[in-house]
């Protein structure tokens, strides 16, 4: 038996869903310029998953995405984060050295010292790590919600 909210709530959730996703990805991508980052943005996107569960139902969410997708996403985020950190060893520097900063390549724009409007193409490996951590936190928090909900449902039955 599907426990869905009313049509009004579901329509509002549909509208909010896009906004939450855009804001979450914005917080992740601008982690090196504005307050926020991978952890915060991932948590914002995970609330979109919770919103779908509240407005629709657990079964509807599992029809859209599987738990395995979140497990793979969480693990891939952590592996990607460690991988980006370890690639620095290949460049002859230490782990977590920022080998892309001020290099002129990807995210390698030179920043003027002091207050500046901020350029997205800066930060070196930091935006990449923010994306990796954002993927991990998104998958992890969504998994926590799904696991706990499945436990509650089993008790009620």
């Amino acid at each position: 038996m599907l426990m869905r909210m009313s049509k009004i709530v579901r329509f509002s959730a549909d509208l909010l869903y896009a906004g939450i996703l855009i804001f979450g990805f914005y917080v992740i991508m601008h982690g090196h310029l504005t307050p926020g980052g991978g952890f915060q943005g991932g948590a914002v996107i995970a609330t979109a998953v919770a919103l779908i569960i509240v407005a629709y139902s657990y079964e509807d969410l599992l029809a859209m995405v599987s738990k395995l997708r979140f497990i793979v996403q969480e693990s891939a985020g952590l592996v990607l984060f460690l991988g980006i950190a370890l690639v620095a060893v290949g460049f002859g520097t230490t782990v977590f050295a920022n080998y892309l900063a001020n290099s002129g390549s990807l995210f390698g724009m030179v920043v003027p010292f002091g207050s500046n409007p901020g350029e997205l193409n800066t930060g070196g490996v930091m935006p990449l790590m923010n994306i990796a951590v954002g993927l991990e936190v998104w998958g992890a928090l969504a998994l926590v919600v799904l696991y706990m909900l499945s436990g509650i449902r089993e008790k009620e039955a």
Partner: peptide, 25 residues
């Protein structure tokens, strides 16, 4: 100038103290 990021908090989290962020993850 070292990390090319305007946000010093993120610079500390993901660059200077990146090893700490591994622990968090």
């Amino acid at each position: 100038e070292q990390t090319a990021a305007n946000n010093i908090v993120t610079a500390v989290l993901f660059d200077y103290r990146g090893f700490d962020t591994i622990g968090e993850s």
